[in-house]
């Protein structure tokens, strides 16, 4: 419904206009004085509406989707089983992954029977959608809080496995890990992770599966 046009009757003072300008100037003066004083105050975030960025960072949400990290479990073992689902779901195709069997002498380093012998993420392609995190059956890949990802060289934007685990260590030390949202399947890893997890009878996998069709639909929409 259209709003009716109301012809406003201006008083003489309003039509002379100078008084109204003076009123406006008083208002801007108040703002100016407040911010002028604030600029002398020490400490970060002295002005209510802006953040003085490098010194003064915003609180970011715990579920923020920033730089990736590879998680370790409580015993310090890698959770990644190298199934490649993240690489498959990734709409930007930024993850490249090589799967390998865990050697006999390195069982204590990996949680599963298989592991990813190489795991690279190209951050220049990544769109930070978080599908890899959603799809991961072991919660091995998680998007963290890091957002200062600018580099001077292209090579600087590649993330290998060591760097991703380092990210996780740093996040754990500063207590910035996300709350767990999915049950973790570490005890009985699948010997052969199929992209369609329909044949599995494991209850944990069942839950993952419930979440999956939605994500697949979303992925279809995006592609």
């Amino acid at each position: 419904m259209a709003k009716p046009v109301v012809e406003k009757k201006y008083t003489l003072g309003e039509r002379i206009y100078l008084l109204e300008i003076l009123k406006g100037m008083v208002l801007t003066w108040k703002h100016f004085v407040f911010n002028f004083m604030a600029s002398f105050r020490s400490g970060p975030h002295t002005v209510p509406t802006t953040w003085q960025y490098p010194e003064d960072r915003r609180e970011i949400s715990p579920i923020f989707r920033g730089e990736h990290m590879q998680t370790l479990d409580d015993q310090g073992r890698e959770k990644c089983i190298g199934c490649g689902m993240c690489a498959k779901i990734c709409p930007a195709q930024c993850i490249s992954i090589v799967k390998a069997k865990v050697p006999e002498d390195q069982q204590e380093l990996y949680a599963g029977k298989t592991y990813s012998s190489s795991f690279n993420i190209d951050l220049l392609r990544c769109i930070f959608c978080g599908f890899c995190e959603e799809v991961c059956p072991t919660n091995a890949i998680v998007l963290g809080q890091g957002y200062e990802l600018a580099e001077y060289r292209r090579e600087g934007c590649q993330r290998d496995k060591a760097r991703l685990i380092e990210n996780f260590r740093l996040a754990r030390e500063s207590g910035k890990l996300k709350p767990q949202r999915k049950p973790v399947i570490v005890a009985e890893p699948k010997a052969k992770p199929a992209p369609e997890g329909g044949a599995q009878k494991d209850p944990g996998v069942q839950k993952v599966e419930q979440a999956k069709p939605k994500k697949a639909a979303a992925a279809k929409e995006t592609t």
Partner: peptide, 18 residues
Amino acid sequence: RGASMIQDRLGPNRAGPF
């Protein structure tokens, strides 16, 4: 700087003092 302070900002304060 005047503009930014009127608009609740701090303005360019990086190069040199103030």
